[in-house]
Computed example of a mutant assay.
Amino acid sequence: MAVTNLTPPMAAPGYGKRSAPDQTPRTRADFAHLPPREAAIAAYIDRLPEGAAMDVKTLAKQIAGYGQQAVASALKNLSLAGYLRRNRELASEDGTQWVTRTHFSRTARDDAWWTTYLNGDVPPERQEPESRPAAYEVLASVGRTEPQLSLSAAECAEMTPLVDEWLARGATATDVIRALTTGLPPEGVHSPGAFARRRLRDKIPPERVVRTRSVPRRISLLECTSCGMEGRPEELPGGICRTCSAAPQEPDRTEVPMELTDFVRNLRAEIRERRAQRPRR
């Protein structure tokens, strides 16, 4: 893929490319499974800055070898594959200004995800698993902090699920040890296992509330990536209306440069002229 202009043109404010949230890190193999044309155009779009112009005419000018028809077909296929969606959003409070936006995700999404995102209900980001100590190790270390609470291996194994629940609710190893070892009875602890078990149950912290990112719900209409027809999400599976989905696919061909086209045309005209000048036998 050759790019004719290293500085991509930007769209008017409020328009242009918008990157979807929570994408996987960029790699060379992101679009390797796609046909060559779709892979090349997707890779180019992926590297465009936010707000860059993404209309068919602009992309065809920027990417050498693909004309408007080829770019339009590629965008249709990328939409069906889950990488692209277009929509119209109400951009003014008085209801008079609408903008068309093109959303791109390096990570392919299904229709349900795109519908949730375009409605303004941003899907929660993936949470990486937290590194936390093993519960058995926490219990085994309690005796080093408070010798009165030295637990046997069997007692540590038995109470491991209780400590697991503490850790799942956001507590740290220090929190668990502090809860078990502070405020001990003056007469001492006569049964460390029973004492620790009771404290783990009585002092367990509340469940952690998982918050998801959200933005005000916006008025949005999905647009067919191919023809621009508006419709409800269920009417445009893959971001394509049923009419465009039923249309035959354009062949994947690279456009011939204009200079070569003119050369071939002139050559044919010259051959016809020479044939006409030959003496007839």
Rank of each mutant, 00 (worst) to 15 (best):
M1L: 08
G16C: 07
P21D: 11
D22H: 15
Q23V: 12
T27V: 12
T27R: 13
D30E: 11
H33P: 01
P35E: 12
R37F: 02
R37P: 00
I41T: 10
Y44V: 12
G65E: 01
A70P: 00
L75K: 13
L75V: 07
L90R: 12
A91F: 01
S92K: 10
Q97W: 01
W98V: 13
H103L: 09
D111H: 06
W114C: 02
T116E: 15
Y117D: 04
V122H: 08
A135F: 03
Y136L: 06
E137Q: 14
V138P: 02
V142R: 11
V142C: 09
G143D: 06
S152G: 15
S152K: 07
A154Y: 01
E155G: 11
P161V: 03
E165G: 04
R178E: 15
T181K: 10
G183R: 12
P186C: 00
S191L: 08
S191D: 15
R198C: 00
R199M: 03
D202Y: 00
I204M: 14
P205Q: 08
E207Y: 02
V209N: 04
T212M: 04
P216F: 03
R217F: 06
G228D: 03
M229S: 13
R232D: 13
P237H: 10
G238C: 10
C244M: 10
A246Q: 14
A247I: 03
Q249K: 12
E250V: 05
R253G: 01
M258Q: 15
M258W: 06
A269D: 15
R278D: 04
P279A: 14
R280F: 03
R281I: 01
